[in-house]
């Protein structure tokens, strides 16, 4: 058995003349939790769909769980759990009916027991006959996760599973992801949240369909070579627009009430900030993942995918 759960090379996908994914390589070992990041429209969903055989790549090839993604998607589907970005279970079926349907499709032995147990673990036993469409967003996501893991897949593909979910539910959801990972599942999860990205073993960042950067959080941050200073207080809001144009300042971003100013040239940056030392207190901080991504996006430039 291959050590890699996902091994795709030069994957591209065009819709009409628009290149949604452009020459992406991913080599993901089994048993890890990988984060898939990138702004909206950067090609995360399209890549995931190609990996599990839902879209045919325009170019490129790959192996998923030891099977060819172009020819053996039937095999891949049996061993994969894919949670779609939009809730895609049946709103007009009850929680139980949805799970039983899935259990039948995967031909799970002792179906009733498995479904009972899944509902029990979800804590939905008393609501099992409620229509799935009446659940709140957070519960829908938990139901979907339970449904796609019922057949104990080797690979879990989660497409923005925590979008629009409240913070506590997000935390619970991630505890569940790590629990599944501990059972041996390989997990690829796309997200927009930096705190979630930091809980991943490895990060893949897409921008405009291209793989911009990948690696561990620390490595990615280090690779940018950024120095970051932070200021807090009443004056920072008026400061931001003035800072942006100064030499040495690569980007300026708010984190809550605090202002982060980053640049690669420490000397130039310190000089620039010195002009405002009277107004606010500057303190050097560790460059965050988000700072790193903002800088990377600026270096990547505008979207050039619309081939004329």
């Amino acid at each position: 058995m291959s050590e890699l759960a996902i091994d795709v090379r030069h994957l591209s996908k065009a819709f009409g003349n628009k290149l949604a994914v452009d020459d992406v390589n991913i080599a993901m070992p089994r048993g890890q939790v990988w984060g898939f990041l990138g702004p909206n429209g950067s090609g995360k969903t399209t890549t995931i769909r190609m990996i599990c055989g839902l879209l045919r790549p325009t170019a490129g090839e790959g192996i998923c769980l030891g099977y060819d993604i172009a020819r053996e998607s039937d095999r891949i589907k049996r061993r994969t759990g894919y949670m779609t970005q939009r809730f895609s279970f049946w709103n007009d079926l009850t929680i139980r009916e949805n799970l039983e349907f899935v259990a039948r499709l995967y031909e799970l032995p002792s179906r009733t027991a498995v479904v009972d147990e899944t509902i029990e673990k979800l804590g939905l036993t008393h609501r099992q006959h409620q229509l799935a469409g009446t659940l709140s967003g957070g519960w829908k996501q938990r139901l979907a996760l339970a449904a796609v893991t019922m057949h104990q897949p080797d690979l879990l593909l989660l497409d923005e599973p925590t979008a629009g979910v409240d913070p506590q539910a997000r935390r619970d959801f991630w505890d569940e992801i790590h629990a599944l990972s501990n059972q041996g599942m390989t997990v690829l999860v796309s997200t927009h949240y930096m705190d979630e990205a930091e809980r991943c073993d490895h990060i893949v960042y897409l921008a405009h369909g291209k793989l911009l950067v990948e690696g561990q959080v620390r490595e990615i941050v280090a690779s940018t070579g950024l120095v970051t200073f932070r200021a807090q207080g009443a004056g920072v809001r008026v400061l931001a627009p003035k800072l942006k144009t100064l030499p040495g300042v690569q980007h300026v971003a708010f984190f809550g009430a605090a202002l982060h100013v980053s640049g690669t040239d420490r000397r130039a940056l310190e000089q620039a900030l010195a002009q405002f030392a009277d107004d606010v207190q500057w303190e050097e901080v560790e460059t965050s993942l988000e700072d790193a991504f903002i800088a990377l996006m600026e270096r990547a430039g505008p979207d050039a995918r619309l081939s004329a």
């Binding site: 599990c52 839902l54 589907k77 809730f87 895609s88 279970f89 899935v102 995967y106």
Partner: peptide, 14 residues
Amino acid sequence: ERGTMENLLAMPTR
């Protein structure tokens, strides 16, 4: 239209 097709296709159905 409801987006459930993606789910159906992601599961092992011929």
